[in-house]
Write a protein that binds this DNA or RNA. Sequence first.
DNA 1: ATATGTGCAAATTCTTTGCATTAGA
DNA 2: TCTAATGCAAAGAATTTGCACATAT
Lengths: 152, 152
Amino acid sequence: MPPAHPTAPEKFALALRTLRQHQQRVTAPRRAVLSVLTRRHGPFTADEIHRRISKGVCDIVTVYRCLTTMEEINLVRRCDFGDGSYRYEFNTGEHHHHHIICRVCHRVKTLEFCVAETLERMARKMGYANVTHTLEIFGVCGGCSRAAGVRG
Amino acid sequence: MPPAHPTAPEKFALALRTLRQHQQRVTAPRRAVLSVLTRRHGPFTADEIHRRISKGVCDIVTVYRCLTTMEEINLVRRCDFGDGSYRYEFNTGEHHHHHIICRVCHRVKTLEFCVAETLERMARKMGYANVTHTLEIFGVCGGCSRAAGVRG
DNA sequence: ATATGTGCAAATTCTTTGCATTAGA
DNA sequence: TCTAATGCAAAGAATTTGCACATAT
């Protein structure tokens, strides 16, 4: 069986395969987007991804289109931290997880733990099909708390 | 002690009192917004609220400003279903709750139950202060499933 | 060869802001 | 009275769309 945490190149190769399996073409912009997303987990906004791509490879519009396509085939997951823009992360399919977002420095930590199965089960009992959920935790991280404490 | 589920007029009266307590003026647009939000739990988008207000009472911009003010004094809660617009609901302060949103008809049910305390506790242990969370459940409700089933 | 993907410009959608005017307290 | 709230117009930000051109298969 594959290692629990595939390396970036492994994820990248897997992603290209997944594209082809879904009759999607492997283009330079798609490679670039996937390269960013497999190297660091993110999640990143479309703009952040675009800025991490070598200048001139593609337009921000193309980044959006790549991400939409990739979300449709479950290669990426779209997250919403409620701050006005969506974020995208590579979907390894390994484990469902959530984020803790610092309200001050906006750094994101991943929580490899989910507590919402109970709620999903409840929703299914209520007659819902195709149940999913979003769950994000917000707070002020230790560093930012200390920084604020020192100042005032 | 007050009843567990105050009536709409009770909520409305309470809301006006809360406004005054916070040195906020009681104006026609604010009454109109609160009237909508206390009559039905929602949550509603700014546009939905505006359309439910008698024509000519106020501009959509004013609805946004009312909602912002009301959120600041905790009279309303802002929800984000990740579909491009925020939704607002009256905050009775009674109990924290979540929503189940049908992906097809977009009808919202309230889940008077929260499972995320565990996660918040975990975040606090990780050194985060001022911890909150967002949690929404999505699915296809029974009615919509049946409708889809009948057709195809 | 040909359908799919991309660039550029422009449109859309949601939300916020500036400023003169109106109206609560 | 006098500050806070509103209307209107316009700005902003994020995302999507239209269409001609480029390119992966």
